[in-house]
Design a protein around this nucleic acid. Structure first.
Lengths: 216, 216
DNA sequence: GTCTATAAACAGATAGAC
DNA sequence: GTCTATCTGTTTATAGAC
């Protein structure tokens, strides 16, 4: 039986353990999560973690690999044609970011994934290196290419690269600080409707930022 | 001897324990940090944690209190005069955010504090409630007042409140993801010079965002 | 592959000397 | 206030039955 196929739903002990790992590592932290707790959530026993992943740390790495795999699927980046007009590039950025924002803010799955990776980043985990080399840098480079075309700046200029990071930061903040935002906005929670409202504001910011990139 | 005065440098066992706690909880996480490790860094013994704070969890709370105290000092918010002209409000926002960005990105102390609070937020810790009620909401409200005056929108409108969060998100992203940013930018680390470069870009974004707030 | 039972290490809290 | 020694519970990893 294939163990690493992505098309299988979370069936099988291995996949159940990874799902439980991402969820618990993300919400409680790696160290605060016991293997017994993971096994219980995955409806299996503690020994299966050692059997499938060699130990708790092996499960952590498997969770990192699944993070990259899942996000690559969501981003589904296509190579950027070099002869794009600025308005076409801007439209592609709009559409792409709208989809990403919808996923990051709208899907419960994304909340777990972002929390998980956030902790890995905070701990400067080697998993971050893998994810960075695996798809983060390439994705950022592609977005910079579009951003450069849309704003009329050199795609790999400092201004463009930093602006792209800034915009990503805006998105992630609402995912990470969702409870703080909800409280300040008087929302019960950050649901689909609220996510759409945030997305609208962020896309306005996107246009505003595209208009001034490089005009320091 | 006063135990909670802020003007004393990190002298004394109590202050040393809090400093060690913020640093270790921030970088490794609360659960991953042992009391023995904290005591070693504070150059004291394990039992002193129970003596001064009642236990590991008491130390966590003391760290949260110090976070609020320290950041309140940095923000030093003054009440916003209601008869400010838009350009004056904009100038105040520029100056205030420039100082905050300098602190968040430039001071090593801020790295620990942000990491610490980030983890508390991820775990939905009750400390977040205290910090939110203690100074987060008031600060956000003050910034919204300035932002509203500068952009010509109602200060407590959804657009203004969300835009302020967005801008804060941009700042925090560079602090949290500093290693990723540094790698992508080809920097050795995120030092003073790099912080200034980021600040320049962010302040351009501030102007761009102020110009379009509410224009959905 | 799955599971129970156990081992060896480690945690936080505390008693009591000084 | 500070420190050492120790208690009690929990952790991960693993051996071995099925």
């Amino acid at each position: 039986m294939a163990q690493t196929s992505a098309d299988t739903p979370p069936e099988g002990t291995r996949a159940a353990l990874i799902a439980a790992g991402v969820a618990l590592f993300g919400s409680k932290g790696f160290a605060a999560t016991s293997t017994r707790e993971i096994a219980a959530r995955a409806k299996t026993n503690v020994a299966s973690i050692a059997y499938h992943f060699g130990g708790k740390d092996g499960l952590r790495q498997a969770c990192g690999a699944q993070f990259a795999q899942r996000l690559t699927a969501v981003l589904q980046q296509a190579p950027v044609p070099a002869d794009l007009r600025p308005d076409q590039a801007r439209a592609l950025l709009h559409a792409g970011f709208a989809r990403v924002i919808g996923f990051i803010l709208g899907q419960a799955e994304a909340a777990e994934m972002v929390s998980f990776m956030l902790r890995e980043v905070s701990e400067n985990s080697p998993i971050v290196d893998q994810v960075y080399a695996g798809f983060m840098e390439g994705t950022h480079r592609n977005v910079c290419a579009l951003w450069g075309l849309a704003s009329g700046c050199a795609p790999e200029s400092d201004a463009v690269r930093l602006s792209v990071f800034s915009f990503i930061g805006q998105i992630l903040y609402f995912r990470i600080g969702n409870r703080i935002v909800a409280r300040r906005m008087g929302w019960d929670a950050l649901g689909q409707g609220e996510a759409a409202q945030i997305a609208a504001v962020l896309l306005v910011h996107l246009d505003a930022m595209l208009g001034t990139t490089g005009k320091v």
